[in-house]
Write a protein that binds this DNA or RNA. Sequence first.
DNA 1: AAATTATCCAACCGCTCCGGG
DNA 2: GCCCGGAGCGGTTGGATAATT
Length: 371
Amino acid sequence: MQMRKPAEPFMGKNINIGGGNTNSSSSNVSNNSNEISNNGGGGGGGGVKLRKGLWSPEEDDKLMNYMLTNGQGCWSDVARNAGLQRCGKSCRLRWINYLRPDLKRGAFSPQEEELIIHLHSILGNRWSQIAARLPGRTDNEIKNFWNSTIKKRLKMNSSSSPNNSENSSSSDVIMATAAGRYMSNIQEQTMYGMYNNNMAADSTNSSNSASSSRPTSMAAHGNMINDPLAIFGANNAGTTNYFNPQSWMVDQSSISSGSSLYNYDERANIFGANNNNIINGGGEDHHQGQVFVPTTLNVEKNATANFNPDRNPNIGAGGGGGGGGGFGGYNNWEGSDELRSVGEWDFEELMKDVSSSFPFPPDHQLQKTSW
DNA sequence: AAATTATCCAACCGCTCCGGG
DNA sequence: GCCCGGAGCGGTTGGATAATT
């Protein structure tokens, strides 16, 4: 049976924060779903009857007004003081996932999607940590997006690869293999970041409150990147680590245009940045197709090589490409021994000094693809 | 038009972590 | 060190919706 075309993610929501909530699904509260339950069971009588299920617009208004007026406090107090017959936990979830004013609405951009894939290949299902690097996105949102969209795509990509055909009996293996293939790209990208002296991974400036458990021991004190994720969000000043599209502005005169790698649009070319950060043009003469080579390990600063998208059918060669295929994980570099060493770069070696604090994915996700 | 099926996603549940007493 | 309560996280569920038959 032909399935319906997936709806635009998150576009079905029609939330009107601050005003009347016009979200039909949210307001369509049935008596069944909003059961009144006795929270907590025992505990000696007098248990408050708490609502469950979907939130009504009135409840949203109450919570929104309370939060905007009083700010966040003890969630059980919030629930009580806002006049909500909800547990604090439910209030917290509703606020974080739905009512928070700084939430970004709408579909995930291709950049966000790629970022999620890469972060997931490093962090695994640590949705909150992934979300912490995508401002305006919630862990729940990302989790749902992953499970409903990306996971499927990865599976499809993986199963279509002849190299992985022997693994097709196990979805876990497929996913691990797919993640492993993405991992090779992660290695490249992390390495790019190493050239950036500013890419200190001090998370103390992170404004995202959702990131509560980020290992602080990863703070960088040298030129070496200590946070493999910093590359995703570091801006020119290295002040933020989370995803920051603005810091990924494209220099259209350099590698971003036309045949460049991962060039979705002129706003946020992830790897086409001319900001001395992600991929380094270094302010020097960087030609179209020329990419940054990091200063450390066994490659030389600003060695040049060409990225050849044709060597990987999964990587879109044109602007806005990529969308269908995403990253393939194969070696697309050619013409430079230094660049080849990129593939041989030992990610685990680089990370071993932080591995005690950095939550690594399972080993099987760290498998490197062949080059 | 009705039934079936797949998909999305909000919300719940159970667990862990952490801080205070 | 232990207990307790609150907060946060990740997995899972179920209702709503839309496409297809």
